[in-house]
Design a protein around this nucleic acid. Structure first.
Lengths: 123, 123
DNA sequence: ATTACTATATACATTAAGAATATAGTTGAA
DNA sequence: TTCAACTATATTCTTAATGTATATAGTAAT
């Protein structure tokens, strides 16, 4: 199982950014968002349903999204989430942070690859 | 303050990989490793001393490193850590995971940048 | 009607992490 | 020579994040 941070534990923050990204494109609901998250590398195995709903509620409490019940469609009614202006700003900031994080990961990988190259030369 | 994952909380796993990397190059001790971690984007502000020592101990419990007291040098004696064969294997695996994670971050950033470009075109 | 599926929600336990604090030897300056 | 500053490691306490398990309930299909 491919995880995002080595262990399942540290996924939620990345999950939040992905959700903000998806909801920036269009409104969405829990179960439906789960399927879209596959795009960012989440699989059903490493994404926990309770984590998803818990995260959406937390984001609502923080004012990044709003929700309302959508009835009338096929199947059980859905709680549909919509991103707010505050949520969009948050997304901007999180992307900046991710860019910095990406550069740190790249530094680490470069150092590792370099080490491996040196070790192979010695053989 | 630039963090690695949005909040200080989720840093430790990345910290572990960085420590394994540094200790793969040469043996090291807590306080000294702190300075070297700046290379990977850790600053004194977002790296907690207790987190560092706790992490090193945890890594020792997991068999990724071994330690011994180094006396005789200047200053207080140091607990010096050395990477094990198991630790080297762990580093290999963690790097693989980080490469996958990096690709997911890139996907997210690409989607975000694309969205921004579309929004700007509309103006 | 009964089973499977969609959808959301919550309680419980564990792990990760930061803050604060403790201990103690070393070095250097007054 | 004693006092302050620094190096170095360790531990305790608390909160936040997260996975597991479970609950609820409507819908669809057979």
């Amino acid at each position: 199982m491919v995880l995002h941070n080595g262990k399942p534990h540290q996924m939620e923050r990345f999950l939040e950014v992905c959700l903000l990204m998806l909801l920036h494109d269009e409104i969405g609901y829990g179960y439906g968002l789960m399927e879209q998250l596959v795009f960012f590398g989440f699989s059903e195995k490493d994404l926990n349903v309770s984590t998803l709903y818990r995260t959406l509620r937390k984001m609502e409490n923080e004012g990044f999204v709003t929700s309302l019940w959508e009835e009338g469609g096929p199947g059980p009614k859905r709680r549909v989430y919509k991103i707010t202006a505050k949520g969009k700003k948050e997304l901007d900031q999180r992307i900046d942070i991710l860019k910095v994080r990406k550069s740190h990961i790249e530094k680490l990988i470069a150092r590792y690859d370099n080490l491996k190259a040196v070790l192979e030369d010695r053989e």
